[in-house]
Amino acid sequence: MTIEASRLFDVGLMTLLVLCALAVVRTKDLLAAAIIFSAYSLVMCLVWDHRGAPDVAMTEAAVGAGVTTVLFLLAIGKTVRREK
């Protein structure tokens, strides 16, 4: 991959990250927020891998996108879904 393409990829991922972060904070539906946060983790995973850190990328995918989301969903199931 040329340097320009690599940089363009980075810029695209960073834009997605910022959009996801804003969406997580702004949405009032906690279930939607949990899913968007999972998408954020997946994008972050791509960033780590692209930056040459496959170990961290693996952790991000398994913990950030997987287990944390499941725990969030369980917590929402025990409480309420809408933010006041």
């Binding site: 170990d55 952790t59 398994a62 287990v67």
Partner: peptide
């Protein structure tokens, strides 16, 4: 790449 924590999380 990988290790105990990553593999453990996949198993979990």
């Amino acid at each position: 790449p990988g290790g105990g924590f990553q593999g453990g999380t996949i198993f979990a």
